[in-house]
Write a protein that binds this DNA or RNA. Structure first.
Lengths: 127, 127
DNA sequence: CTGTATCCCGGCGGATACTG
DNA sequence: CAGTATCCGCCGGGATACAG
């Protein structure tokens, strides 16, 4: 066996279904998760209809699904105030705030490198 | 206007379709992108069939789509050696390697906090 | 105001078979 | 070996209407 044939990839690199690579690190949450995080990062509790405004008037069904998923995962708290009319407020938990670090890191990458990606795509189309 | 009503969310927070938040920072690439990055991070050129092994024998169609998308975005280089039988090798570009930082950051988050998420989900089911 | 209830569409991801 | 060619099922995301 010669030197240059050695070192195949380990077949079990991603065997563990819970390993952090398979956790699809670049696919945390749904389409709207990151934007909801941004809406809540200042710590101020926000209401359902308040969130819809910057989120392009996302439909209620989709916003509900997004918020429920984040609540279920422990990223935010849903507080119902028993009033009339009803008032519900959403706030990030400590776990939810812990996502802001990775989010910033990836946003910083995007700001720095998205132009290169755009260039690469143009070049690829061209030839 | 009282103090406690102030500071609504800016309606145009995510207006720019290319803004780094809307870039879905937690949704970079497809299901297999991160794993391909891991397979190539050691700098060693890898062949098509070589990649399939750790990737759970991903179907050729899906692997091709993943690799083509990454090539198109400038993340990797596809080199065809004119031989018989054919040999094709994939290598990360500098741009592709620049993704490893954010990837590590998010993987570190996952290792540190996924147990909390699991707990939160269990608690949500239970109550 | 804060959501449900329906219906719907596109597209990612996959299974299988075939080719240069 | 390194892919194409088809076909297909699922589900995320959305539009619209309605309810407590």
């Amino acid at each position: 066996m010669t030197e240059r044939e050695a070192r195949p990839l380990r077949p079990d690199m991603f065997r563990d279904p819970d390993c952090s690579d398979r956790a699809q690190p670049f696919r945390v949450g749904g389409k709207w998760t990151a934007m909801v995080l941004r809406c809540l990062e200042d710590g101020r509790p926000r209401r359902f209809s308040e969130l819809r405004v910057p989120l392009h008037w996302i439909t209620p069904k989709v916003l509900t699904e997004t918020l429920r998923a984040m609540e279920r995962d422990g990223f935010l708290l849903r507080v119902v105030h028993e009033e009339n009319p009803p008032r519900v407020e959403y706030t990030l938990t400590a776990l939810g705030r812990s996502l802001l670090g990775p989010l910033d890191t990836t946003c910083a990458w995007a700001r720095a490198h998205v132009p290169e990606v755009t260039e690469a795509r143009a070049a690829y189309e061209g030839g």
